[in-house]
């Protein structure tokens, strides 16, 4: 059973190809616990109006970005740094394969939305703080800002859904193989 919380305040990173070195620089890969990574989330990301030490990121529980999110290294430290900071839902147009698998393997959500939906979601941010909830069974993302609500449906492969429901790949594989 999952212990993850899907949904909450969202932070928007309006750039494609955000890589694993930006998410968690290699110099922190010397840590051997997930918790130790907590202070370093997105430390090397240079983006306009983004402060890796700011309250906006600190309060975020959902991260929204563009194409090819999480490209680069295989380091699972990337989804882990989100996990230990309570960000269990990522929404993007597409992901690098290893990052996407790592996220589902940890029982978290890497939701893909088509560009048009994502554009609408980014536009919603202009209305104010965006709160997002995820209806996992119905496969819908519900986003609210400034009294406005929008719903986007998403696809989830049965395997990815099973991983999220099982709380990750180790539990799934251990039962089955």
């Amino acid at each position: 059973m999952t212990d993850k919380l899907f949904g909450g305040p969202a932070i928007f990173l309006d750039r494609s190809d955000i890589n694993t070195d930006e998410i968690i620089p290699a110099k922190y890969l010397t840590e051997v616990t997930k918790e130790a990574l907590k202070p370093y989330m997105l430390e090397d990301l240079n983006l306009e109006n983004f402060d890796p030490k700011g309250d906006k990121l600190k309060n975020a529980r959902v991260l929204v970005s563009r194409e090819n999110f999480g490209c680069g290294s295989s380091r699972e430290h990337a989804p882990w740094v989100f996990e230990v900071n309570g960000v269990h839902t990522i929404i993007a147009q597409s992901y690098a394969r290893i990052f996407r698998q790592n996220t589902f393997n940890g029982g978290m959500l890497a939701i893909e939305l088509p560009k048009a939906d994502l554009d609408r979601l980014f536009a919603l941010e202009k209305e104010g703080e965006v709160g997002i909830s995820v209806d996992l069974d119905g496969q819908n993302v519900i986003a609210t800002a400034g009294g406005k609500t929008e719903t986007y449906s998403f696809d989830l492969s049965p395997f990815d859904k099973a991983l999220v429901q099982a709380g990750g790949w180790v539990d799934f594989a251990d039962t089955r193989y």
């Binding site: 698998q101 790592n102 594989a173």
Partner: peptide, 20 residues
């Protein structure tokens, strides 16, 4: 294929890995 630590862990324990 490069994989994360969880896939590695299952690989070490069970000798399998899942792919699309």
């Amino acid at each position: 294929a490069g994989v994360g630590t969880t896939d590695l862990e299952v690989g070490i324990l069970k000798g399998v890995c899942a792919f699309r």
